[in-house]
């Protein structure tokens, strides 16, 4: 067990454990906070995979943007005086069975596949490489995503106003 391994297990535990609470706990606000921990754990995994830029983006966009947006949604769609900000559940048992079976099936498939992997080498920061790719090979995709974000922005604003 190296430090790397310990760190990986730690982050995997944080991720999966809090993800479990996200989907099981009844209080929506708590659930959202556990989602925060899940995202944080995933950020850690990214760092372990030496994807530094993605990790930062994950923090900024998910934690700073999407999570706050979800919390706002919770606040806007429940009366403040209503303490019971809770979500009901349905079809628990068949879902649990289905999901567990699916999980085992997926894991079995992943493990039984002989992935062609390479020896890991130390990697520098990927920011420069990403930047170069973004404006050369993927410039069209980049532009299109920009347009998509703009359209989503306009669409969301106009839909929410109605």
């Amino acid at each position: 067990m190296t430090v790397y391994d310990i760190t990986f297990y730690l982050f995997a535990l944080i991720t999966l454990g809090s993800a479990f609470f996200v989907v099981t706990i009844r209080n929506i606000v708590y659930s959202a906070f556990f989602l925060l921990f899940t995202l944080f754990g995933i950020t850690g995994l990214y760092v372990l995979l030496s994807a530094d830029f993605i990790a930062i983006v994950q923090l900024v966009v998910y934690v700073g943007g999407i999570l706050v947006l979800l919390l706002f949604g919770v606040m806007l769609t429940h009366k403040i005086t209503n303490v019971q900000i809770k979500s009901g559940t349905l079809q628990i048992i068949p879902s649990a069975i289905a999901v567990i079976v699916l999980a085992f099936a997926l894991i079995k498939i992943f493990l039984s596949t002989n992935w062609k992997t390479f020896q890991l080498t130390a990697q520098n920061s990927s920011v420069q490489g990403l930047g170069v790719l973004l404006v050369n090979q993927y410039s069209v995709v980049f532009e299109l995503l920009g347009i998509l974000l703009l359209i989503a922005l306009i669409g969301a604003a106009s839909m929410a106003r109605r």
Partner: peptide, 19 residues
């Protein structure tokens, strides 16, 4: 894959749209 299945579980079982 475990995270994926947890996500599916959340999508299927929760009543609240935000969840």
């Amino acid at each position: 894959s475990v995270l994926f299945c947890l996500g599916i579980f959340g999508v299927i079982t929760r009543k609240n749209a935000i969840m």
